[in-house]
């Protein structure tokens, strides 16, 4: 519940059971697999090969996955910008582009982009958390401001992303 890098297997089952039947079968399955791969990589200390991911996933999952399935999912996540590939001999190793916490912060910031007074909300958020978290949030904001999206930072109101008015 409070352990940030949750073990892959229970989380995956959790998703399969919780969101099932509402999101559509195939979509949910894809989501669960992507999630399991991300969890495995977030829990690992180093970039992993597909074979290693497969072993990790199959060690905990009831259903046996094929090599190709895991590779496809890893490629899809790479295209989405969530994983990066590290060349390793003939093959690739995969590593997350962001830590799990950074990803979560980015997600919450995404929910904030549209606010007319996001600066004020950010200030409240920063006040409400321990310093380390606040610092991490500022880093995420910096990355956002200099990143490809060039999202507006605090104070700029609605900003370029919205171009309202």
């Amino acid at each position: 519940m409070t352990v940030p890098p949750g073990p892959p297997a229970p989380v995956m089952r959790d998703n399969g059971g919780g969101g099932n039947g509402k999101e559509g079968h195939v979509g949910d399955l894809g989501g669960a697999l992507e999630r399991a791969v991300m969890d495995a990589l977030w829990a690992a200390d180093e970039p992993l090969r597909v074979r290693e991911m497969l072993n990790l996933l199959n060690a905990t999952s009831a259903r046996r996955l094929a090599y190709n399935t895991v590779q496809t999912v890893a490629e899809r996540l790479t295209r989405k910008g969530l994983l990066r590939r590290v060349p390793d001999g003939q093959a690739f190793r995969y590593a997350p582009t962001q830590s799990r916490d950074d990803f979560t912060v980015a997600l919450m910031l995404d929910a904030l982009t549209d606010s007319p007074d996001q600066g004020a909300i950010l200030a409240r958020l920063v006040e409400s958390v321990p310093e380390a978290d606040a610092r991490r949030m500022l880093d995420a904001l910096n990355a956002r401001a200099t990143g490809p999206e060039a999202g507006p930072e605090s104070g700029s109101g609605v900003g370029s992303d919205e171009a309202r008015g």
């Binding site: 940030p4 989501g31 991300m38 990803f103 997600l107 409400s128």
Partner: peptide, 25 residues
């Protein structure tokens, strides 16, 4: 779709997703 990667279903409320993070949001 991003949420699906990190959020968990809350077992107490059928309409709630949980994000593991100390920020109160």
């Amino acid at each position: 779709s991003m949420l699906r990667l990190v959020a968990r279903a809350d077992d107490r409320h059928p309409d709630v997703l949980l994000l593991d993070h100390p920020l109160p949001v």
